[in-house]
Nucleic acid binder design. Sequence first.
DNA 1: TTGCTTTTGTGACCGGCGGTCATAAAATAA
DNA 2: TTATTTTATGACCGCCGGTCACAAAAGCAA
Lengths: 213, 213
Amino acid sequence: MQQPTRKQREFARREKEILCAALHLFDSDAWESVTIEQIAQQTDIGKGTVYKHFPSKDHIYARLALDFYDELLERMKAAATSQSVEKRMREMLQIAFEFHLNQPQYRRVTQYCHRDDFRCRVGEEVNEEFRMLDARFGELTVSLIEQGIAGGIFPRRPAEYTVYGLHACFEGAMNILWCAGNRQIDIKIFTHEIIEFMMAGLVNMPTHPVIDN
Amino acid sequence: MQQPTRKQREFARREKEILCAALHLFDSDAWESVTIEQIAQQTDIGKGTVYKHFPSKDHIYARLALDFYDELLERMKAAATSQSVEKRMREMLQIAFEFHLNQPQYRRVTQYCHRDDFRCRVGEEVNEEFRMLDARFGELTVSLIEQGIAGGIFPRRPAEYTVYGLHACFEGAMNILWCAGNRQIDIKIFTHEIIEFMMAGLVNMPTHPVIDN
DNA sequence: TTGCTTTTGTGACCGGCGGTCATAAAATAA
DNA sequence: TTATTTTATGACCGCCGGTCACAAAAGCAA
C-alpha cells in the first residue's frame, strides 16, 4: 500500500480543520443554524470545498460523532482490566460519563446522531459504521455482565436483556445533563447517584425465570 | 367570565384541526421537513392563517408536546391510588410506558421538546409551561418515593436524588425504543426489563450516608 | 521557461422554506 | 344596502443546503 501523496495529506489535514471549525461552531444553542458558509469561512476555504470533503451537512455531524465514540470505546476497553467485575463496571461507567462531560462541545452532535431519522438520511455506509460501533459497545458491556454472572455477582439472566437497563439509564442521564439548561444539577452528585442506581439495579434484578442450562 | 363567542369557538376548533394535521404529518422520519404550507393544505386553510394561531413552527411542536404530557400526568395521578407503594410505582411506570407506546405519532415532538436549545427558542411563556409540567411530574414521583421511604420499602436517601435514576432510565428507555429503527427489540420484554431494573435500583440503592434527622 | 492539459477550489446560482405583510375577502354595524 | 372593521391569505423576502460552470492551480511535455 502506497504512502499518501502530499496532496492526499493536504486534503486530510484540511478535512480535520473543517471538522474542528464545525465542532467549534456547533458548540452553542444555535448549533442547527450554523451554516456551511460559516464553517467554510472559519476554515478559510470556499463553500464548495466543504462539499468536496462531505456529501452533506449531516455527514459532518456523523463524522464528528463517530470519531467521538471511537475514542470513547478505546478508553472504556483500556479500563476494563485488573479489578473485580463490579469495580470494572463502575470504572467503565465513570469513564463514559467523564468522557462526555469533559467534551461538552460534542453534546449536540452525539445526541443528534442517535436519531433513527438522521441515520436514514446519511445513508447505508455511515449507518454501517454506527451499527458496528453500537455492536462493539454492546459486546464490551455484555461480556462484562456475563463475567459478573459467571462469578455470582450479577443474577443469572440473559446479559443482552440486562444491558437494556444500563444502556437506557446511561443515555437518559446524558440527556438530562445536557438538557438541564439553567436548572441547577450538581453534576458530581448526579453522576454518583446514577452509577449507584445502575449498580443497584444490575446486582439486584430478579433471576430470570426462563434460563435453561 | 363570558362564554366564548361563536367566532372564538371557531378559532379554537380550527387550532385543534391544525394540530391534528401537523401531528399526522410529523408521524414519519421526514418530520423535520414537514412545511407550514403542507400543514395549511392538510387543514384546508391559508399559510398565513397558521401564523394567526402559532407564532412559529416550533410553537406547534411545543403545543403538541405540552398537550401530550398534560394528559400523561393526569393518567399517572389517577393511577397512584390504592395498592402498596411498590405496586403503585410499577403501575405508574407501566402507564408512562404504555402512554408513549400507544401514541407513537408523538414520539418526535416529545423528544424534540426536551432539548434546551429548543426551549430557548420558544420563549419564556412556553418555557414556563414546560417547567410547571416538569415540576408536577417531579412532585408526583418524589411524593411516592418519600412514602416508600417512610414505609421502609425504599432506602433512606433524599428522594430528589433517587428520582434522578428513575428519570434517567425512563427517558433513556424511550429514546432507545424510538431509535430502535429496524433493530428488533421485543417491546414487551424491553419494558419489562427496564421496569425490573428500575425497581431493583430503587429498592436496593445504598442508604444515603449524609441524612440527618 | 512556455504552452497545453488536467485537476481542484470556488462562489454565483437554484429551488425551497420560515415568516411577513399588503391586500382581498368576510363579517359587522348603521 | 353601504361603509367600516376584522380576519384570512398567498405573493414576496431573505436565507440556506447543495450544485455546477468556470477560474485558478498544478502537472507535464517540449
